[in-house]
Amino acid sequence: MSTSTPSRLSDAEHAERAAQLLWDAVSAGDEHTAGELVHRLLDEGTDPESVLLDVIARVQARVGEEWAANRISVAQEHAATAVNERVVVAVSMHPAARTTVTRGRITVACVDGEWHGLPARLLAEVLKLRGWRVDYLGAQIPTPHLIVHLHSTSADAVALSSSIPTRLPTAHAAITACQAIGVPVLVGGAAFGPDGRYAKPLGADAWAPDARAAADLLAGEPLPRPEPDHQQYDDLPHLADQEYTLVSRSGGALVRQVFTALEDAFPAMRSYDHVQRERTAEDLAHIVEFLATALYLDDEEVFTRFIAWTARILVARCVPASSLPPALDLLARELKDFPRAVRILRAGTRTLATDPSTAARNTV
């Protein structure tokens, strides 16, 4: 190993240097060098929690940023994430990370359909370091299986993670199911919006912005146990109009209808090859999914943030984002009898027209 490896993460500069060294290894797919780096940090007395959160988590965030900017491919992003996951295992197996259970029991899991498991794994490891007995269930846990597990373990709380906003309706079902058997739920992850704004409407008992904050919160007063048969669905009265249900159930048909009409509304599509047409269909499917989620929450910002992000992703890949406004207009026509859906779609169109990061580059 290089003698430039920091021996302590006593300040932000040392953490940044260690993260850069790990990034060099992770981005090259060099698992051995990455593992040697974290072992050296731990051998030299670096706090394992710091290695997890100030180094590994920082590098993983950069992996996502590099993919979004089109500087690494999907395959490279997956490979880098796989190396990072192995590095987390290396930290957990190091003698410096061995702790005695001094607290209660926490179940950590991802919402069903959520495949970004690393944030939850980082939380699980931090909680172990803090003295908790942790059951880490991994990514994409079906709610019935989660409930069976809770019945058999008497967990003090469940920590649910989700990065994808379209999983929020499923998260709501999981939160309610856990609470119905008397287990409180702490949630976290990007899906729950800026400052965790969707955690309370979905009935979560607590929200934390990151693993360190979650561990601090759980170390305080125990989360109160919900009453049996606890229900939260009455907190979303707008669902009574059935727009969410009807849009989510007709998603496939909506994608087909808009895809067929888009060739006339966006003539450049006529020259698309097979792969480009497949990608367009996938983008339309994501648009409908995020529209349904915005309807579920009655929050147009879920949709407008996604549309702005999609436009930036397309521009980064040298694909004109000018196909998005016609697609939103066609969807609004198909859903003309759904006032909330039309309002949300119009908000998306306005966002595309005013977003400075994409508006000037949306032409074909």
Rank of each mutant, 00 (worst) to 15 (best):
V148N: 14
L254K: 05
R62S: 09
H116W: 04
R86A: 11
R105D: 02
S2D: 15
Q257I: 02
L331K: 08
L218M: 02
S50I: 00
Q140R: 14
L202D: 08
P48E: 00
A15M: 12
T176P: 06
G35V: 00
T102D: 03
L202R: 10
C178M: 06
K200C: 00
P209A: 12
P325W: 00
S92N: 07
H145G: 11
L53C: 11
L150E: 09
H32Y: 02
V26F: 02
D47A: 03
L52F: 03
R350M: 10
V126Y: 00
H145L: 08
A268E: 13
D205A: 14
T46A: 13
I175A: 14
R133C: 04
H39R: 15
C178D: 07
Q20F: 12
H149F: 03
D24W: 07
V51R: 01
A341I: 02
S10Q: 10
V148I: 05
S2H: 13
D43T: 10
V63Q: 13
I147S: 10
H238E: 06
L352N: 11
G131E: 02
L335T: 08
V87P: 06
A285T: 11
A19L: 12
A359L: 01
A253G: 09
A68F: 09
A97Q: 02
T176M: 11
G196N: 07
S2Q: 12
G252R: 13
G189P: 00
Q60A: 14
N84G: 15
V187H: 04
F192T: 01
M93D: 09
Y136L: 07
S248L: 06
H78E: 08
L324S: 07
A353F: 05
A139Q: 12
W309G: 06
A265Y: 05
A240W: 05
A180E: 15
H286V: 11
T143I: 04
A18W: 05
R340K: 12
R249L: 08
E49F: 00
